[in-house]
């Protein structure tokens, strides 16, 4: 059953066509990968899905509703969460506060509650803390750093905290923008294990952008390949590896003689 449907998406900045008529559907519970050379428009797709870019044409259907014209914060509240290619954590906050912030849209305390704190806001915060400890901090093995400011953490850990923050948004679909870029083999393995656990244990749908081909071929159910803003192929890892258009985009063409 499709959870996300993108139809004829078009995005241009001035004369530059970034996305040209891209359509795809993501099924519930699968890991869907988007790959392509640099500048192919992968991150732009995520930005359109999140509402940060506004597409010129095409629509985005998420869990049956057209979300094309919703603001980014409304989309987040509906269950669309993402991580960023260049880590976008809030550097003035601790790990714990960053993760708590992810749950923002699901909390209800209003202005007066927060100013008085005792009562509703307190109960809500305690429940949130317990949930985060049990389901996210424990799960991602970041107990030891929960009180640290994120700016003091190593790169790999920051990526993990970002994943934790996205999980705290209680998403239905998780958009991961290069989750293992710049990581060493061990960190990559850890991250892959977390991603697979998330998908299995929580029945989450995952859309992933990544350049690490070995990882992509290993974990994705289906792959879409973009080149210069056009969708050139879609299929299982096995199909993609043999697809002539994909080989052309990545490796170039043999020069024809004569």
């Amino acid at each position: 059953m499709p959870i996300l449907e993108v139809n004829n998406l078009r995005l241009a900045f001035g004369g530059l066509q970034v996305l040209d008529d891209v359509s795809f559907t993501v099924n519930e519970g699968e890991i869907y990968a988007i790959i392509g050379p640099n500048g192919a428009g992968k991150t732009s797709i995520l930005n359109c899905l999140g509402g940060f870019y506004r597409q010129q044409a095409g629509d985005i259907i998420f869990t049956g509703n057209d979300i094309s014209s919703l603001s980014p914060d409304r989309r987040a509240a509906l269950g669309l969460a993402r991580t960023f290619q260049n880590i976008a954590l809030f550097h003035g906050m601790t790990v714990l506060d960053n993760i708590k912030l992810g749950s923002h849209a699901h909390l209800k305390s209003g202005l007066l509650d927060t100013l008085l704190y005792w009562g509703r806001a307190h109960r809500e915060e305690m429940k949130l803390r317990e949930e985060i400890e049990r389901e996210i901090i424990d799960f991602l093995e970041i107990e030891h750093i929960r009180k640290q400011p994120v700016s003091t953490l190593a790169y790999g850990l920051q990526k993990r905290v970002e994943l934790a923050r996205a999980l705290a948004m209680r998403p239905k679909i998780l958009l991961l923008d290069e989750p293992v870029a710049g990581m060493n083999a061990e960190e990559t393995e850890d991250m892959v294990r977390f991603i697979l656990d998330i998908q299995e244990e929580r029945d989450l749908t995952i859309v992933i952008i990544e350049h690490d081909m070995r990882m992509i071929m290993d974990i994705s159910d289906r792959i879409m390949v973009l080149n210069f803003g056009c969708k050139i192929a879609e299929g299982t890892p096995g199909e993609i590896q043999k697809h002539p258009e994909v080989l052309k985009a990545y490796l170039g063409e043999k020069r024809k003689h004569g």
Binding site: A77, F90, K100, L107, D113, T114, L116
Partner: peptide, 26 residues
């Protein structure tokens, strides 16, 4: 108290990185 709850956290998020704050649902 403000900074122990969602509102204060949202404020700091806006200061630190407003674009990702918005994508977090603020």
């Amino acid at each position: 108290n403000l900074f122990r709850t969602r509102m204060g956290r949202a404020f700091i998020a806006i200061r630190d990185r407003d674009i990702s704050a918005e994508l977090m649902g603020i």
